[in-house]
Nucleic acid binder design. Structure first.
Lengths: 271, 271
DNA sequence: TTCGCTAATCTTGAATACAAGTTGATATTC
DNA sequence: GAATATCAACTTGTATTCAAGATTAGCGAA
């Protein structure tokens, strides 16, 4: 039974070209390979992804509707600036959704999926993951699963959308070990409260958990953003969008704005 | 200063052709000119709207992402069936959002926009509107304004999306005069409670208000749906998509399904 | 040098052309 | 007559072409 495997890399072309481009560009956004404020054209993306303008356009308009990009009249496309006022609103929505989810979970006789979550998060310190990006994935899964437990697909869809919008800054929060520890502790406490049907306790915990995360992100992100920017600037000519050769971006890749407003606080460069 | 006005009707073509098509098709959906379960092709829409396939496709994919349509492999497009399980989930989301909005409104010293709402809804019976579709518009505005009062644009965007998804059945609820009366009474009570910062009272009222509406829609819609279907079937060859001549739909416009599942309850045809 | 104009080049938005696949009707065979 | 194979007419997905406007580089004049 030796099935002569095709190149699995090429098979990826079949299930919707526009979908693939969408995923690639979004990935580039999260990886800061496309920087906030950066401008680019449909043609460059088309060349980089090997697709024609049509599916590229479909992917970009979708990302624009989701709030990541903006198309400029008959000039090119632009990566939206990081807008912390917007992130605050998204964090607020996230809180609303997750607290509602807790309400519905604690009303269930046997909260859906809570056992699996307990197995993941109620573990002694030595068994915990320490690698930031791994914990980040697990953390997103935690919050997502809670909402999924309500059985409401629409609520889940909304939650997913919000999560993806704030992912770009949230991922920066999982590099410091104390934040990782705190995540474990807080998640465990939330799970316990839900399992015991203590709704208001669980909601209180979740509320402060999200709030802490939000504040931590606000504090940390400005610093991390400049790191990410520098890292990306160093790799300017390096491959973007997976492993396709880069032709360079727009004429003048403007790295200045990055933020919607320069923000009042001072930015501590690594002195 | 006599500026020779251009034909303002034609100016409508300039601001995004895809946008216009999107609005036209959505309008046709709400008006039951495109029936649930109906199939159609990009070419027919293109002919009916006078646009080419490219902007049509953009509009349709957007409507598909919003849950109204489905594209079938390399066969045509299809209007999604009415799925009452889905509507229940959407009503649930709507409740979550609006209750959260009340929480935030009552926390404000001077709830934003509450005075304007009071002026609209706290009126004596003789001054009230009685025409169903007008009240329906006003009702949507009421709920939308409450959410807008939170100042959270993202919450508003989500709420708008949910509202539009359930509009197709909700609009059927505003034909019976007792439902219209109830709407006035309940809205007035909610506004009063919010203005007095009685959060839990306002939330209780809103919760039951939405629940009543939901139940009323569930009861009424099956009947109304068949009416709407018949009305549309009669006007089969009548103009669709505004005032462009209809070329007819798909080969076999299947009017059978309409609903996701035939639903257990009996349907009373007008005997 | 600096400002302003011009023209070439690049951009999106839309229309069209092409390719691959589905569907449904028709002819055919049992 | 009924089941099946075949084929022509559609459909979407993608690529390409066309049109109109925006941007920028370069040149010239003050």
């Amino acid at each position: 039974m030796t099935t002569p495997l095709r190149f699995p890399a090429e098979r990826a072309a079949s299930p919707a070209l526009a979908e693939r481009v969408y995923a690639q560009v979004k990935q580039a956004l999260f990886a800061f390979e496309l920087l906030p404020g950066e401008r680019f054209s449909e043609n460059t993306v088309a060349e980089l992804t090997g697709a024609s303008r049509t599916p590229v356009r479909e992917a970009l308009t979708r990302l624009a509707r989701e709030g990541f990009l903006t198309v400029q009249n008959r000039s090119g496309w632009r990566v939206n600036d990081l807008d912390f006022a917007l992130f605050d609103q998204l964090y607020d929505v996230r809180t609303i959704v997750e607290l509602a989810a807790i309400d519905r979970l604690t009303a269930q006789i046997d909260p859906l999926g809570i056992i699996e979550l307990a197995a993941l998060w109620q573990v002694p310190p030595p068994d915990r993951l320490s690698e930031g990006s791994a914990v980040f994935l697990l953390d997103e899964q935690f919050h997502s699963q809670l909402v999924a437990g309500t059985g409401n697909l629409e609520l889940q869809r909304i939650h997913t959308g919000v999560t993806e919008r704030i992912r770009i800054v949230r991922q920066l929060d999982f590099t410091e070990s104390d934040r990782i520890e705190a995540t474990y502790t807080e998640h465990a406490a939330i799970i316990k409260a839900i399992a015991q049907h203590r709704a208001s306790e669980a909601k209180r915990l979740m509320h402060s958990h999200i709030e802490l995360s939000r504040l931590s992100v606000q504090k940390i992100s400005l610093h991390r953003l400049y790191e990410a920017r520098e890292k990306s600037r160093a790799a300017q000519t390096a491959p973007r969008f997976d492993s396709t050769p880069a032709t360079g971006g727009f004429r003048s890749p403007p790295l200045e704005p990055l933020l919607e407003k320069p923000i009042g606080g001072t930015c501590h460069e690594s002195s």
